[in-house]
């Protein structure tokens, strides 16, 4: 099982992700990720995934339209982009295995279809907000005693 585990960091959950521009040929999307990792805040209250302007520019994401979002100061218009997104995880072996979670190599789990994301201003804490449009595809849990978050990415 491929999973990503992280601990609370200042009451925030941050997981590593990769972003790329999907390519479109003969009516089919495909994706090719660089090895660069970005910091993604897990936010179950966000209906959509958000990516910072600098990451959007770095990956030359394609602008496709707009979307309005509510906020404390009234609705704000954001630009929508098309992105390929992958989440980094490590393979979990049976308990009697000599390979621990920390020792196993990182692998990227890429979402099958391109995703529509919206832009946000750059900030020092994270590059991406992982919204429920992505989280809904996975089982995930939080253990309050160990402060450990786990998201199951695949087999």
């Amino acid at each position: 099982m491929l999973v990503q585990r992280c601990r609370l960091d200042q009451h925030r959950l941050i997981v590593p992700v990769s972003v790329s521009k999907p390519t479109f040929e003969s009516g089919i999307f495909s994706q090719n990720f660089a090895q660069s990792e970005y910091r993604a805040l897990v936010d179950t209250g966000a209906q959509r995934t958000v990516i910072s302007r600098s990451v959007i520019a770095e990956n030359l994401l394609m602008r496709v339209g707009h979307m309005e979002f509510g906020g404390l100061h009234g609705p704000r218009t954001h630009t929508r982009y098309l992105a390929a997104l992958g989440l980094w995880g490590r393979r979990v072996y049976p308990a009697d295995s000599s390979i621990s979670y920390e020792q196993s190599e990182q692998s990227l789990f890429a979402l099958e279809d391109p995703l529509e994301i919206v832009n946000m201003d750059d900030n020092a804490n994270f590059d991406v907000i992982l919204g429920f449009d992505v989280l809904k595809n996975f089982n995930f849990s939080f253990d309050h005693q160990s402060r450990l978050f786990e998201i199951q990415l695949g087999n």
């Binding site: 805040l41 966000a46 979002f69 509510g70 906020g71 404390l72 946000m120 201003d121 919204g131």
Partner: peptide
Amino acid sequence: RVEDLGFYSHVGSALQ
């Protein structure tokens, strides 16, 4: 209808 961006909808301006 407008959507909600969670954390960013409510405290995003503070990140700038």
